Simulated scan of single mutants.
Amino acid sequence: MALIEGLVLSTTAYRDNDLLVKVFTKDEGIITVMACGVKKSKSAMRPIGQPYTWVVFDGTYPKNKQGIGFANSVQESKIYRHVVEDLTTAAYAALIAKLVTVAFEEHVKQTEWYKKLLAAFAQLNEQKDPQVVTNIIELQLLPVFGVAPNWRADPLTGQVEGDFDYSDKYNGIIEKSHFDMDDHRLHLDQKTVYYLRLFSTIDISKLGSVTLSVVTKRGIQRVVDYLYDRQVGFQPKEKRFIQKMAAFEGQLAIKPRKRED
């Protein structure tokens, strides 16, 4: 038996009242545990059955780091209430949970990413822009997926200040004087480049108030999607749901035409 601390990422139904729960734990990385009876209305285990809840539970780790463990009783819990109650925030939280689930193997300790994940969910719960929080996680996960764009300096001169654009050919930013060396650069505006460089290194726990224009947010998302599609080769259904939701909200925002006599 052990006291296990972690963040609930997702749950899967198993028999009538039981769940298989995927938890990003502090000490063993991602594990899957069986939570018996958790779906019963009066079960004291219910917190572990709610995704995006921080929990401390009495249980057992998977034996020999294989298979599943067991959750026996919840000792402490903290739900990120805004994350689960706001539809848009919940959609971005689901995307973050899917990305880390795919990025990391189970049973491998990820101390820094555990801290980063909790910080991200705290920011979401404080109603920070969920796209901004998610873009930071997406950009900082790229090296875990084996993709490491150079956001720091022009590789040809080492220049760190100036006007830059993203180049697939040079796997990162290039300075304005070298734009003609890649006909397929992304033609990004400088504000988008600035935030891409910032988000790739920022400590998410120290994220302050960030208010970006729709144009800048679209530019950042375009680059993030480009990198995940072209270099990671991964587009989760959670991202497609966000895209469809944004398109639907855009339709609702269109004002009806005035009726002509």
Rank of each mutant, 00 (worst) to 15 (best):
G146D: 03
V84Y: 02
E112M: 13
P149V: 11
G162E: 05
K217W: 06
A103M: 05
K239V: 10
L188T: 08
L3I: 15
N150I: 11
I136F: 00
D18W: 02
K237N: 11
F70K: 14
R259E: 14
L20T: 06
K237V: 11
L142F: 08
H184M: 11
A120P: 02
T111R: 10
R152N: 12
Q50S: 06
N135D: 13
A120S: 15
T216V: 15
F199W: 05
E5A: 10
D58V: 11
E126T: 09
F145S: 10
T11G: 00
L3V: 15
R15S: 15
Q243R: 11
I31C: 10
E112Y: 13
S77Q: 01
S200I: 08
S167V: 01
P47L: 06
V56I: 12
D203M: 06
F70T: 15
F199V: 06
V232N: 01
L139Y: 10
E106R: 15
H187M: 11
L99K: 03
F57M: 03
N150W: 07
I68K: 10
W54M: 12
V8S: 04
R197W: 04
E106N: 14
L188P: 05
A246P: 07
D225G: 05
I136L: 01
Y228D: 03
S77W: 03
A153Y: 12
G59N: 06
Q243F: 04
Q140H: 09
N125F: 06
H184V: 04
I48G: 03
A2P: 01
L156E: 12
W151N: 07
K176I: 08
K42Q: 14
D180C: 11
I136S: 01
D86Q: 08
R15V: 12
E105F: 13
